[in-house]
């Protein structure tokens, strides 16, 4: 891929990493800065089609299915034991989550 025109800053990359909840170190951030900029450059050529798509609706569901809802009836799901069996930590039948307040 040629030299990128888009330049993400290191701060932007670290901000995105925070949004994505990914633990990035400085080195990885630096590397991703280059790679993401190059990919963004690549996908920016979609703008070439703007004239052709400006009056088109977006397609979010490709077979056209809409509002596929089932009847609002409760039914059995996983047992507590099944739900907890893959958790790294549980306590008294509950998931243990990291503390939210410092």
């Amino acid at each position: 891929m040629s030299k990128s025109i888009t330049k993400l800053s290191k701060e932007e990359v670290m901000h995105v990493a925070k949004l994505a909840n990914l633990p990035l170190n400085e080195n990885e951030g630096e590397k991703l800065k280059e790679q993401l900029s190059a990919t963004i450059d690549y996908i920016n050529h979609l703008a070439e089609l703007d004239n052709k798509v400006k009056s088109l609706p977006p397609t979010y569901q490709v077979t056209g299915k809409e509002n596929a809802l089932r009847d609002d009836i409760t039914r059995p799901g996983l047992t507590r034991e099944e739900a907890l069996k893959n958790a790294r930590r549980s306590y008294n039948g509950f998931f243990v989550v990291p503390s939210v307040w410092d």
């Binding site: 979609l46 703007d50 798509v53 400006k54 088109l56 609706p57 977006p58 397609t59 490709v62």
Partner: peptide, 15 residues
């Protein structure tokens, strides 16, 4: 600029 535009291009491809 990205996701919505891409979904419009998707319509173009479908058409």
């Amino acid at each position: 600029a990205y996701y919505k535009r891409a979904q419009k291009v998707r319509t173009l491809i479908v058409n």
